[in-house]
Design a protein around this nucleic acid. Structure first.
Length: 859
RNA sequence: GCCGACGUGGCGGAAUGGUAGACGCGCUCGACUCAAAAUCGAGUUCCAAAAGAGUGUGGGUUCGAGUCCCACCGUCGGUACCA
């Protein structure tokens, strides 16, 4: 790359201002109780999703959201808010651990190096974070409180009457047994089928399986004893309390679908005198239940299976057990199953129906058993066809055109259904539920797709559980023993032992003569579940966050949720945002927090694609490195370009030519203030004037444009429509560029509008101008008050009114602002062009929109 | 399959139901220069221009539709036997 002259000297002043902000702690935010805290100002908490500090460094996607929040943060400060704008690191994670295994280097070392690199890159972009609040989830001090929160979960249960978490001590007081209590904890142990990767030596979340498989790792299904968090108890609240939040409707929907609420009934069938419960959303179709299906893992399978079918059933169960969730769904097209030899009695008509097992019924949802109604369920229909099972129609579709066979989901009228016959579906459902409840054969039931959260991992680089095992029972260690750090290990490699690599630390494991430590660690989600709370009070040694501080930053009497603005990618629409909401609610229930929701307003930035319109990836070779862009065009150009590309939430392709355009714009802003002299030095542009040297007529066009810009930019920032704000500032700059004179205060005001977007350039120009024009207000622009548009400069004396004939544009005319409707109509009709078009036509109607247009309807 | 978002110049994108294409990129021409770069100025939806056409397609509502309604097509994202 050849070194060419910079269009303006960003390479000199950008590092200079970054150093000033660092040294003077310009963006340090005091807490309530701190010396220079101003309680009269309203608060505003702007949060970014903190990054995982990968070895690859910052991606251009990071500065997109981070610039948006930085603009808002700087704007709100100028508007007179106490602004909290922190940054930190989500620094536990599998990649660091894999790298450690490969190189033998401790993951803490690479993690710290990566954090240093990320911090350098973020500072290079001039974000106004309060770096004194920086945290990393791997900090010992942070781990301590993550573990403390886990203990809050461990020591709580969900009280279904109060619909909130309550301390376990309440159950102890009720005299419940140890096992009964353990079965109610929000953090509990269960034997579950997991995705185990022998070569990674850990279980993986369902959504991680694909990724690691593609990297050549093997993943298998096996039952393991795991820590679980009882998020399902919160399913209802996680749906209901989403409602008042200012989130994109599509994200709310995504969460609702993920939680998957459905309303129906549980129905008791009997097999050989034993009761078995099924769940259905269509109790009105009970008369059409012609067979029953249990999932292969159902506990009743062994007891009901007939001798003749034992071998076949056992073979089928084995086949299913070896399949992963993924393989099971891959084979979704083709139904498989085996007859158990048993028959169930349908409670509504006493019919004997065959009981099958099939893998299209899942253990984890409902009761793991279904009544099959092949006439009105697509899957049951397929299955019944394949195995020649009877099909009985019990719902008449709403229209003759609809084929009832296997057609599901419609509501119609019950037929062939005894006491339900003739009833429309909603009434039939209600009637059936009432009948079941009266006979003690079933009840109304709400079900959720959401499963409990599998919370353990078999990794080294994660928070250890503050738990020990004694006599086969788990128990919490004391809070005073926190943080419980991982032992030092030279070898982190997986052993194949499903307890994880920590089993190698024999000294560490041994807690006492009789007790041993839990060797599982927490998933990466743990740290990201509450980091926004630790920012509030990051150095507190006594509490995870001080109560008064938490109440100030998170509390609000008017809105739901504490963080005023949260910006991040859609990839976290469900998991992170659901997990964080869950933890927040538990802490709220236990009295530790003031709001029941963490994030009031959520905005998702859109993905930035490569120049080729494809997703950026190393293999495609279309990755843009922010370091390169900053070197060539400067940080302000990168910031501005990413905001100018298009609406924040849209997916949009990168174009380096576009960065050049933005760089030209910033150079134009610079050249309103400075011009190059003979020696190539920048000197004051003589068009900048003040006081007596200003000629009203020469400075007025710029001033008018400026005030329009103030209005537009203010509104656009409020709407987070940054691209249009920038185009308005471009227009204003263009006006000043071509003006003969510009009043220096007008120009300074433009700089203050641009300051949140391009902080380095604007501070540099302003500080230089203040040396020449001492009448300008003191201090950095970012500490000034946001400009207010003056009405007198917004008023125009005349407007362009367009004249349409039958909706087609035919003429334009310039009229004084206050011209009456009647006058405008007359002027339009008198226009020569209009005359030529309406010649020979009859005018039917004339519509006049004052100040805008005239539409003449004629034929 | 289902759910959601989106379809506007050569490109990124603007448009409270009221002048479609702001602003920027690219391109063309001009000024400056020995020359180039940079910069500044003019132009740039299509058609040679007038007329006309034009916001994925077809209908509808309206004096007037990119915008509202119905149907369809396409692209992207999420989800996947949830009974």
């Amino acid at each position: 790359m050849t070194e060419r002259k910079k269009p303006y000297p960003f390479d000199v002043f950008e590092p200079k201002w970054q150093a000033i902000w660092d040294d003077q702690k310009t963006f340090k935010t005091p807490n309530p109780g701190d010396a220079n805290f101003d309680a009269s100002k309203p608060k505003y908490y702007v949060l970014d999703m903190f990054p995982y500090p990968s070895g690859a460094g910052l991606h251009v996607g990071h500065p997109e959201g981070y610039t948006a929040t930085d603009i808002v943060a700087r704007y709100k400060r100028m508007k007179g808010f106490n602004v909290l704008h922190p940054m930190g690191w989500d620094s536990f994670g599998l990649p660091a651990e894999q790298y450690a295994i490969k190189t033998g280097q401790h993951p803490a070392i690479t993690t710290f190096q990566n954090i240093d690199n990320f911090r350098r890159q973020l500072k290079m972009l001039g974000f106004s974070y309060d770096w004194d609040r920086e945290i990393a989830t791997t900090d010992h001090d942070y781990v301590r409180w993550t573990q403390w929160i886990f203990l809050q979960l461990y020591h709580s249960y969900y009280n279904t009457d109060l619909k909130k978490a309550r301390p376990i001590s309440e159950l102890e007081a009720q005299g419940l047994s140890r096992d009964e209590i353990d079965a109610k904890r929000l953090a509990y142990v269960a034997e579950v089928a997991v995705n185990w990767s022998p070569d990674l030596g850990t279980v993986l979340a369902n959504e991680e399986v694909e990724e690691w498989k593609s990297k050549g790792h093997t993943v298998e299904r096996r039952p393991l004893r795991q820590w679980m968090l009882r998020i399902t108890d919160y399913a209802e609240r996680l749906i209901d309390e989403l409602e008042p939040l200012d989130w994109p409707e599509s994200i709310k929907l995504l969460q609702r679908n993920w939680i998957g609420k459905s309303e129906g009934a549980e129905v008791q069938f009997t097999i050989n005198g034993e009761e078995i419960t099924v769940y259905t959303t269509r109790p009105d179709t009970l008369f059409g239940a012609t067979y029953m299906v249990l999932c292969p893992e159902h506990p009743l399978v062994d007891t009901i299976c007939s001798d003749e079918q034992k071998a076949a059933v056992a073979a089928y169960r084995e086949e299913c057990a070896s399949k992963s969730d993924l393989e099971r769904t891959d084979l979704a097209k083709d139904k498989s199953g085996v007859f158990t030899g048993a028959y169930a009695i349908n409670p509504v008509n006493g019919n004997q129906i065959p009981v099958w097992i099939a893998d299209y019924v899942l253990m984890g949802y409902g009761t793991g058993a279904i009544m099959a109604v092949p006439a009105h369920d697509e899957r049951d229909f397929e299955f019944a066809q394949k195995f020649n099972l009877p099909i009985t129609q019990v719902v008449q579709p709403p229209s003759e055109d609809i084929n009832w066979q296997g057609y599901c989901g419609y509501e119609g009228t019950s037929i062939n259904s005894d006491f339900l016959t003739g009833l429309p579906t909603p009434e039939a459902k209600a009637t059936m539920i009432q009948w079941l409840e009266e006979k003690g054969k079933g009840n109304k039931k709400v079900n959720y797709k959401l499963r409990d959260w599998l919370f353990s991992r078999q990794r080294y680089w994660g928070e250890p559980f503050p738990i020990v095992w004694e006599d086969g029972h788990h128990k919490a260690i004391d809070e005073s023993e926190l943080p419980l750090l991982q032992p030092e290990l030279d070898d982190f490699a997986p052993t194949g032992d499903p307890r994880g690599p920590l089993v190698k630390a024999t000294d560490w494991i041994s807690y006492s003569e009789t007790a041993q430590r839990e060797t599982n660690t927490m998933p990466q989600w743990a740290g990201s579940c509450w980091y926004y709370l630790r920012y509030l009070d990051p150095h507190n040694e006594y509490r995870f966050v001080d109560q008064a501080v938490e109440e100030y930053w998170m509390g609000s009497s008017k809105q739901a949720g504490g963080v005023d603005l949260y910006v991040g990618g859609t990839e976290h629409a469900v998991l992170h945002l659901l997990y964080a909401r869950f933890w927040h609610k538990v802490l709220f229930d236990l009295g530790h927090l003031t709001t029941n929701e963490p994030f009031h307003k959520l905005v998702n930035q859109g993905l930035i694609l490569g120049e080729d319109g494809q997703k950026m990836s190393k293999s495609r070779g279309n990755v843009v490195n922010p370091d390169d862009i900053v070197l060539e065009y400067g940080a302000d150009s990168l910031r501005l370009y990413e905001m100018f590309m298009g609406p924040l939430k849209d997916v949009k392709p990168w174009a380096t030519k576009g960065v050049e355009g933005i760089s030209r714009f910033l150079a134009r802003v610079w050249r309103v203030a400075f011009r190059e002299n003979q020696e190539g030095k920048w000197e004051l542009n003589p068009k900048l004037v003040s006081g007596d040297s200003a000629e009203e007529s020469k400075i007025l066009p710029s001033r008018k444009e400026l005030h329009k810009s103030i209005k537009k930019v203010t509104q656009d920032i409020e709407d987070m429509s940054f691209n249009t704000a920038i185009s308005k500032m471009m227009e204003c700059t263009n006006t000043m560029t071509s003006a003969e004179q510009v009043d220096v205060t007008d120009y300074a005001t433009l700089l203050s509008l641009l300051n949140p977007f391009a902080p380095h350039l604007t501070e540099e120009i302003y500080s230089q101008l203040r040396d020449i024009f001492p009448q300008l207000p003191e201090g950095q622009l970012c500490q000034h008050t946001w400009a207010v548009a003056e009405e007198k400069y917004l008023i125009e004396s005349s407007v362009t009114v367009v004249v349409q004939i039958n909706g087609k544009l035919r003429d334009k005319m310039e009229v004084p602002v206050n011209t009456s409707k009647e006058e405008i109509e007359q002027l339009a009709l008198n226009s020569e062009r209009v005359q030529s078009f309406i010649e020979g036509l009859t005018i039917r109607k004339v519509i006049v929109v004052p100040g805008k247009l005239v539409n003449i309807v004629a034929n």
